[in-house]
Amino acid sequence: MTSKVATLSEAIGLIKDGDSVALGGHTLRRHPMAAAAEIVRQRKRDLHLIGWNSGIDFDLLVGAGCARIAETSYVGISGFGLARNFRRAAEAGSIEIREHSEISALDMFRAGASGMAFIASSVLMGTDVPATNPRIATVISPFDGKPYTAVQAAHPDVAIIHAHSADRHGNVQLDALHWPDNDADVFVGWAGKTTIVTVEQLVSDEAIREHPDFTILPRDAVTCVVEAPYGAYPCCCDDRYTYDLDFVGDYYAASADPAGFARYLDEWVFGLADHDAFLQKVGVDRLLAITTKGAL
């Protein structure tokens, strides 16, 4: 079996300018933030971002000028408010926004993961959403003659999710305890033409095979695996660690204007060689403070 282990830099190097890139996670939960920072560091451009419930991941990439299209059901910084970089770009008309509801966003990944061309239902009927998104169309059912909304499958050029563990062959697992809103990642991962998975820890084959029921993506669905501890930080990551709201608050303040955000990027992305350097700058104390206790 060939090893699928890659460095973060190698993995993100697979992305080409103009690619469609799906990012896993939900609001302030388990977004692949280490990967997003590396996309910024490698100055990717004109990406078509796809998510189902997006947040600081989309805001970072839009604020850094990496995106041309944002397709998702939500971009916000949870309790802090609107995503300011995203808002600025939208109001300046510098990105195209393709709207979704939660169900239609999940449907595009579910269809992509399942090999269906589209999923038809009554989702989004009566809303102005379909007009914003070429992936959404009205179809007449041949069975009852009634109109339905069809959501076309998504096959992102690159799908990136963050998970808990993987073996070197690319079998990816989540711990027994994981928050279901993050499980859309399974569809996201399966839908990608290229699928990059960052994990908290690369583990032995034995550790994976001890709990085969925890495997969410088998190795043939995965292009490469990257060890990125605290790879969702400052988002929370199931029962491993919670979010760092102080960090998010500082991010939110920095994103108030373009100059402040440019300084943020210099300090926290461009000024740091890699994810390790980022973690070192965050510091042991801060990481210990968010890490879940009590697991034996």
């Binding site: 282990v5 583990v203 032995s204 550790a207 390790d276 042991v284 104390d285």
Partner: peptide
């Protein structure tokens, strides 16, 4: 002790993580 850990650094502590099956650190 906090200063001690800070001087060790995040990467060094992460490198001590154990494999969940074996219970001790494995070198890839």
């Amino acid at each position: 002790h906090q200063d001690y850990l800070a001087r060790l650094g995040v990467r060094r502590l992460l490198n001590l993580r154990v494999d969940p099956h074996f219970g001790y650190h494995l070198e890839r």
